[in-house]
Amino acid sequence: MTNQIARSFILEQVRNRGILFGNLLPAFIFIICSWISKISLINNPDTVDYLIKGQFLPISLMMLLFTFSLSGATIYLADLKANKTYHWLKRTNVSPFTYYFGMGIGVFLLMNVSLVATLLAYALLIHISLPSFFIILLVCNFVFLAFYPTSFILAGIFKNGNVAQSMLVPILIIFMFSITMPAMFLTISGKNPQDYYIFLSWNPMLYLNDMLQYQLNIIHEMWLSYGQYAIILLFFSFVLSLFAKKIYQK
């Protein structure tokens, strides 16, 4: 049953060319930017390396994570509600948990395929060790666990997929730039961004960005340990799931 639900979700996402293109484009634009930088700054390899590791790669991964685990799922769920699909589903024998689990598998697969493809593309430009490759994937999946229930909360608030799509743009900006901008400007002004991370600890992207910078040797120490990151993200997932159940069912 879950396989069929996951398959249906993947087919819907892949066949919706506009959404799929929109999901992949931002991440792949930065891959293209990285290639151009690599070619045009051939005499400055350290600069290119720093540019890709510090900016292009993290933004690509954050964009992919956001679009697949939050944006795509939110629009899909909002449309299920708007199209009255639940009137049909409630008469079948599928439980809400099974349906959302199957859908989650679909999101998980799509997200990981695109993440692996993106990381492989970047691995052609910069050195990413195999352990780093898998740690990055693992942390991305923990962030996914925090974002997936958030998509139910947002889908519960927005009337349909179109409204959700337009509202997800400012939400993306908040999630993305609340991490990248302070990190960049604090570094420029000679301050340690990690001193201010406590104020951004509500944002799951923070943990991904910090881990990425560490794995790509931009920083020498993470703000917290992997275990603490895992616990925090699982806590987010649990608490958000409770809210999601109430808000989406309502």
């Binding site: 249906s8 819907e12 199209n83 049909w88 589903l89 079948t92 024998n93």
Partner: peptide, 25 residues
């Protein structure tokens, strides 16, 4: 209850929707 319209799963084919429901029941 048969509703007057079915516009769920816009990017699935008719056969796929029927197969999905056959699995869910």
């Amino acid at each position: 209850l048969q509703y007057q319209f079915f516009n769920s799963y816009p990017h699935l084919k008719v056969r796929e929707v029927i197969q999905l429901f056959q699995r869910l029941i």
